[in-house]
Design a protein around this nucleic acid. Sequence first.
DNA 1: CCCTGATTCGC
DNA 2: GCGAATCAGG
Length: 176
Amino acid sequence: MSWTDERVETLKKMWLDGLSASQIANELGHGVSRNAVIGKVHRLGLSGRAKSPAATPARPRKEEPVRPQAAPAPLTHGAMTHGALALAMDALPAPAPAPRVATEEVVIAISERVTIMDLREAMCRWPLGDPTNPDFRYCGAKMQIGAGPYCLAHARIAYQPAQDRRRDREKRTAIR
DNA sequence: CCCTGATTCGC
DNA sequence: GCGAATCAGG
């Protein structure tokens, strides 16, 4: 397998979205290893997103007295933002301010069912299906402000209030 | 032991 | 350019 423009495009998209090399590898599938992905990422010059600069001075394996090129690193500035969003996507039970929803009617999400390629910044990142399967999609509906990485409907599922659990129900009688 | 990315170097 | 092997770390 070779790195066609299409595969490179997928690689860039996923890497900038903060997906791990192994995830990208088996998404591309067909004999692409994790190392292949990482190697390509470095060759493309988009490595190193959100790393502390002082960490890991890259120990020389051989006897190399001085590394001539310190860090050219033509980094893209948008990488950290994408990565942060993807991190929020990974952890479903994110501690976000649970949006109080006034309506009683449950509105099922109008999912766009987009692939990772079509997922854009303001799109709901609620996963649909098995991420290991090729038919995996994201919801892709419009993100609700204050609802984390989700649309309103999926935010209600993700951030279900534990209100009926505790025994201090005296304070919360006013709700409905 | 699972995973992550980073680096080297033979191909 | 490519990626397996290896390294360093979580």
